[in-house]
């Protein structure tokens, strides 16, 4: 029973300090979860901490490959409509 990090990871480091088992490491190729250490936070927290803070949909999967945060689950709320004719904007 262990979670894994996919290539959708944005390498933001948010998960790393939260892991109660220090199972997450930042390698040259990306972030990794040590399957020997990962407990999916059972006994420590109600939900896996990496999955709770991860901002990237699909970046964390369980042993069956199911995304903890599937596409659409982390999206923003509906936002205001676009301006009728947005010109070039300062700062963009």
């Amino acid at each position: 029973m262990a979670l894994a990090i996919t290539e959708d990871c944005v390498r933001c480091w948010a998960c790393l300090p939260l892991c109660p088992n220090e199972a997450i490491s930042a390698g040259a190729a990306g972030f990794d979860i040590d399957p020997q250490r990962c407990t999916e936070c059972v006994g420590d927290f109600a939900a896996p901490q990496c999955g709770e803070i991860c901002p990237a949909e699909g970046a964390l999967v369980d042993a069956w490959g199911h995304a903890l945060n599937p596409p659409g689950s982390l999206g923003g709320a509906p936002v205001a409509a676009a301006a009728p004719a947005p010109g070039p904007r300062p700062g963009c």
């Binding site: 923003g76 936002v79 205001a80 409509a81 676009a82 301006a83 947005p86 300062p90 700062g91």
Partner: peptide, 11 residues
């Protein structure tokens, strides 16, 4: 999310 939704910035 704002950029993709077409939310504009102020002039």
């Amino acid at each position: 999310a704002f950029g993709l939704a077409g939310q504009r910035g102020p002039d």
